[in-house]
Design a protein around this nucleic acid. Structure first.
Lengths: 346, 346
DNA sequence: CTGAAAGCGCTAACAG
DNA sequence: CTGTTAGCGCTTTCAG
């Protein structure tokens, strides 16, 4: 097994002083003579001493670990948010333990239990798609363990949250479509109970009415966020007696699937039908035509979530803050009928 | 701060017995009376007791944490490998701490230092692109801390590794191109010192000679794995007096960039030039034309790395094992000139 | 059958 | 200026 690392005791013995002297010397305690401090530090450096975090943790009851639970690691959005979290966690000397719920409520609960057992100091969580019961979160709150939600959120009166301005963004996409000549605009949403589904739906409706368009309920489609289900929703839309001439989806993965389906259906993008997504993954510029998409400040979302988390650790009585991050509509080929691949910001 | 959790002491006090009795009761020690065991377990369950991992860690000198260092989290390949690692780690009751080196040698060293300080029980690492000096790895080995490499590897005589069959795969792509009518086959490689660059290059050369093609050195291009640098390499290839009629790249990201560049250059895929990638990301089927790619068993690579890791923790004297995982060439539109979007496996 | 005591590595209050 | 002691939560001899 692993070689035991040097401890204060080892150094103390080697120097012929007591353990506490070494401990103090290492932190420049004023009571220790300068020469001793120098000697202690020299030896500690030589032996590559570093304090045992478990001993410290036991003493201070702190693990410096944050538990992060996300629906899916294998996604540009989530992995990018995690980089953001990691960035500020590292600054603060914290480690991040990521567990994926795989969009499963059961797994989400399990992950929380496991991480609580591991004594993480708190949680940063994005709800699984299935989650409609919040008792496991209440449990965290009751144990007075810091908790922050991002993107998919709940219990906003008790828990700080970071989200994108979904409403505004969906409204923006809708009127962008309209401005480019579309009048039969469809939206493929996600599970109803998710805040992001709902807010984007509201923005969509507002966008329609802003443009003087009627809401036609078959144009409001739904999927479970998987490519397969998104493809099926797309097919339903395209098969309508009067099919839409523009579609946007709750995220880019959904729209990539819609894009494939549209092409299979024999329609041209954007000539026959315009497309736009949400999140602006790297791959939006890789597909052809390049995908118009609402760019999320994903890394910043992670950073912000971590910042809220640390605010909370410092003061658990804080009134839960809700941060809404601005998004940007990045217009690309998939929603512009005029020739030219312009790429302009809203 | 966090509420202190119940300890053995709390339960012991409440039951009017000693701490050691509770400790024994919880693990069905034969010396404890059955009724006491029942009472102890009941109360422990009620109070939601779980042993403090730091106390255990201090005692047993084990943290049950694995440090994983990868070049980049925001990539299908790496996040998928990590899911695989997490899967088996979780089975074994281990946690995974992921840090990204961002392809930086400096950061890679730092991450190792930090994780050693955190007393992870060992490492699973994929080298950063910049890494050519291996002293930080030697340090891990000397400390007798378990270490496993995957994908980008080094020190194979000392460290167990999991890689894909790069040589065979590159050879396969080359002859697939040839079989589909290409004769001027180019390869965009990555940094020279990476094993994956080199093995794929060797496979490419073997493939050429298998097909009776001459090696033409301008067709062996190189990039630093960024989309920008891949695009530049592509442009150099396309601007050659006699440009290639087929290109494959060291990974899909590179080829996505090549695809964009090719289109910008005004060439049709696959009519004018065929393309193929490595890794088979999800997005290979999203681009148009769909990308032929060498499918990596990414999740399995993670699982295998974790398995090797645990073998190592159980016996540090094991002879380092090198596992090579089979890949599959998934043929899609980007490399097939006949009409029809066939999708067949090799 | 059960309790007391030592020790894992460290800090901090209390003595000198 | 430096050492001793207690204690963080737990397991494990060693004594009852």
């Amino acid at each position: 097994m692993v070689k035991p690392r040097v401890s204060l005791k080892d150094i103390a013995k080697e120097l012929g002083v007591s353990i506490s002297t070494v401990s103090r010397g290492l932190k420049d305690h004023p009571d220790i003579s300068n020469e001793l401090i120098v000697k202690i530090k020299a030896l500690a450096g030589l032996r590559n001493y570093s304090p045992n975090p478990m001993a410290m943790g036991l003493l201070k009851q702190r693990t410096r670990m944050i538990g992060v639970i996300i629906p899916d690691l294998v996604t540009h959005f989530f992995s990018s948010v995690i980089s953001g979290i990691e960035e500020v966690a590292q600054e603060k000397g914290y480690f991040v333990i990521v567990s994926s719920s795989n969009e499963s409520y059961r797994k989400e609960r399990e992950n929380i239990q496991n991480l609580m057992k591991a004594r993480v100091e708190g949680f940063i969580i994005c709800l699984s798609q299935e989650t409609t019961d919040y008792s496991h979160f209440e449990q965290i709150i009751e144990a007075e363990i810091p908790l922050v939600f991002f993107d998919r959120v709940c219990l906003k009166d008790k828990v700080p949250t970071v989200v994108a301005d979904s409403f505004e963004a969906a409204r923006g996409i809708t009127s962008h479509f309209f401005g480019n000549g579309a009048s039969r605009i469809a939206y493929i949403s996600g599970p109803k109970h998710l805040n992001i589904s709902d807010e984007r739906r509201m923005g969509y409706l507002k966008g329609l009415s802003d443009c003087g368009l009627e809401f036609y309920s078959p144009y409001l489609e739904q999927c479970d966020l998987s490519p397969e289900s998104a493809a099926a929703a797309t097919l339903r839309l395209l098969s309508l007696p009067v099919p839409p001439d523009a579609i946007f989806g709750i995220n880019d993965t959904v729209v990539f699937a819609a894009m494939k389906e549209t092409r299979k259906f024999g329609l041209r993008i954007p000539e026959d039908i315009m497309l736009a997504g949400f999140t602006d993954e790297f791959h939006a510029t890789v597909v052809h035509p390049m995908l118009t998409s609402v760019m999320h400040p994903t890394r910043e979302m992670g950073r912000m979530a971590a910042r809220l988390f640390f605010e909370l650790t410092e003061n658990m009585d804080l009134v839960p803050k809700s941060v809404e991050l601005k998004t940007t509509l990045v217009i690309r080929e998939s929603s512009v009928r005029s020739k030219g691949n312009e790429r302009m910001k809203k």
